[in-house]
Amino acid sequence: MARLAAFDMDGTLLMPNHHLGDETLRTLNRLREERQMTLAFATGRHVLEMRHILGTLSLEAFLITGNGTRIHSTEGELLHRQDLAPEAAEIVLHSHWETQASMHVFNDTGWMTQNEIPELLRAHVYSGFKYRLTDLKRLPSHQVTKICFCGDHDDLRRLKIQLNEALGDKAFLCFSAVDCLEVLPTGCNKGSALNVLSQHLGLTMKDCMAFGDAMNDREMLSSVGHGLIMGNAMAQLKADLPHLPVIGHCNKQAVSHYLTHWLDTPNLTYSPE
């Protein structure tokens, strides 16, 4: 029996309009009230944004943010932190990259980028979280949690080759979406962070269930007792984890649909909408 449920946000819990559906919210509350399950949101989003979202929902959950770089308790206590190695941050910030992608830097103060890109704010309309225009080359390399590049997927795939050659084992690279490539601390991902949280709660990863849709969910989904892939997930994620069940699309609140079945009719075979 699962005792901890971890949820990715974008493409998983959130609908394409970046809002959490009413059915999903009701089902999450059912998990807590009827099964006394602990909830965790495991997301690439910043903790400042997630605190705002949780506040509007009045929902108690642990936060794994920045793709595993931070873990906070339900009371807001920092349980774990991991930053990009200064040497890696220095390389990424001060090298020339053959790419059209935009660069974005995150630390505890927020989100920084160099140019106005209004379309990127659409994903944050629910929370109002925004970037600050900053000369990224002037940022101290020891104050960088993670770096993201946003752009065309094929361009990002070529950039990933460049970054791998330059960074080696100094950082971990992954796609959090088809149009977003992330540079994270070595060994840092949602799976490793969920393991830290599980141990903190006196649980094992086998006691966890998790839902996700992108390559930054891979380690988490593959290491829990019950991992579920969204129907709208990246093709590479489905190909890498063919043994995991695929549920419906986030636009139909598929997480709620699956969990309602799990709560009410666990003896019946589940069929996505």
Rank of each mutant, 00 (worst) to 15 (best):
N67F: 08
N67S: 11
G68H: 01
G68K: 03
R70N: 08
I71A: 06
I71R: 03
H72D: 10
H72K: 08
H72R: 06
T74W: 01
E77I: 11
E77D: 14
L78I: 11
L79S: 15
H80K: 07
H80M: 13
H80G: 08
Q82N: 07
D83Q: 03
A85H: 02
P86M: 00
P86D: 00
E87M: 02
E87N: 00
A89N: 03
I91K: 12
V92E: 05
L93I: 06
H94W: 04
S95L: 05
H96D: 14
W97H: 14
W97Q: 13
S102H: 12
S102P: 01
M103S: 07
H104D: 05
H104E: 11
V105R: 07
V105L: 13
F106H: 11
N107P: 04
N107S: 05
D108P: 02
D108E: 12
T109F: 04
W111R: 01
M112N: 06
M112C: 07
T113F: 05
E116S: 14
E116F: 06
E116Y: 03
E116A: 12
I117Q: 07
I117W: 02
E119S: 14
L121P: 03
L121W: 03
R122F: 08
H124P: 09
V125A: 10
Y126N: 15
Y126K: 12
Y131I: 04
T134M: 14
T134S: 12
D135Y: 07
D135P: 09
L136V: 12
K137D: 15
K137T: 15
R138P: 10
R138T: 15
P140R: 02
P140Y: 00
S141G: 03
S141C: 08
S141K: 02
H142W: 02
